[in-house]
Each structure stands twice: as C-alpha cells, then as structure tokens.
C-alpha cells in the first residue's frame, strides 16, 4: 500500500464464527490483503473488551478493527450489538485521551465475505494513511519525548 509506513499496525479483533473465517477464506482464495493487519481470534465480538482496544492503542496500534457477525446473526444472539456500543465507548475514550476516534471501527462480515474482509482492512489502512501513525508509538518521530510504555506499565 503506497503511503502507508512499513511499521503500520492494525489490530483486528475477529469473531471466530464469521470474520475470522472470512480472513481464512481470503487466504484460501488467494485474495491479497495487507500484511499490516494482526488478526486476533475471539469467540464472539461480545468478548471484545474496552480494555483490549485501549491496550492495543497504548502498545502502538495505528488502528483497531472489530469484526463480528452480520446484524441478527450473532452466534450468541447479541454479542455483536454489545460490541457496537463498546466500540462507540472506545471512540469516546479516544477523543478524551486525544487520539482520533476514526482509529477504531466496527465491521459486520460473515464467514463467506472474504473480499469484504479485505476491503475492511484496506479501509482501515486508508484511515491510518490519512491520520498518520499512532502518536503514542515508540520512536515515532512526532512523539515529543521518546518515552515508552515499558517503564510506565
């Protein structure tokens, strides 16, 4: 992807019943998707904790995507609806902290939607391209002091 720095990191929390399978399928279909995405399998987006997302940003992720089942199709009935509200809450927290709220987004991707998964990753890469890297990341040139989380954690 042109314009995106090599060390770009996108963390994707993917439901095992849908988006994770879609990512798998994309691989199987030989659909190219950007290598910057780190996929984390979760049993349901309802398991997506606000703290997971915050931690990802604190550790330097440039963007976080949460990908769950299509509305109405949650294996646990409404885990994906809970995730929508939590993503909104994370957006509030990001604004409060001083990061751009666009850095996190909720997607709904069924297990057969491999190309949509690829597009979702590309969309998040575009966001990072626009916003620039996460300013919290270590050795980021815009970071005023090169203080890193190891010592503060």
């Amino acid at each position: 992807m042109s314009g995106v720095k090599e060390d770009t990191q996108i963390v994707a929390f993917c439901c095992q019943y849908c988006a994770y399978a879609a990512a798998d399928l994309a691989g199987g279909l030989r659909l190219q998707y950007p290598p910057e995405v780190k996929i984390i399998q979760i049993p349901c987006t309802g398991k997506m904790d606000i703290l997971y997302a915050l931690q990802a940003f604190e550790e330097g992720a440039d963007a976080v995507m949460v990908a769950g089942c299509l509305p109405g199709d949650c294996h646990f009935l409404e885990g994906n609806y809970n995730a929508i509200r939590r993503v909104e809450r994370v957006k509030d927290l990001l604004r409060m902290i001083g990061l751009e709220s666009q850095r996190i987004k909720m997607f709904h991707i069924s297990s057969s939607m491999a190309s949509q998964f690829v597009r979702a990753v590309e969309e998040m890469l575009d966001v990072v391209e626009q916003l620039g890297p996460n300013p919290l990341r270590a050795n980021h040139p815009e970071n005023p002091k090169e203080m890193i989380s190891e010592e503060t954690r």
Binding site: I50, L51, L54, Q55, F57, E58, L93, M96, I97, G98, L99, P135, L136, P144, K145, M147, S149, E151, T152
Partner: peptide
Amino acid sequence: SREAAILAASLRMASKLNGDPKEV
C-alpha cells in the same frame, strides 16, 4: 477494577500525548 484500569490507561496515554508522560 475495570473502570480503574481504563482510567489509568487513559491517563497514561493522554499524558504521553501531552508530552508529560505520567506513571499511572
């Protein structure tokens, strides 16, 4: 405990962005 952890992480990030990283 969850709210405490969220607030601590938020304060760490906000203070770091502010150029004055705190140990929280």
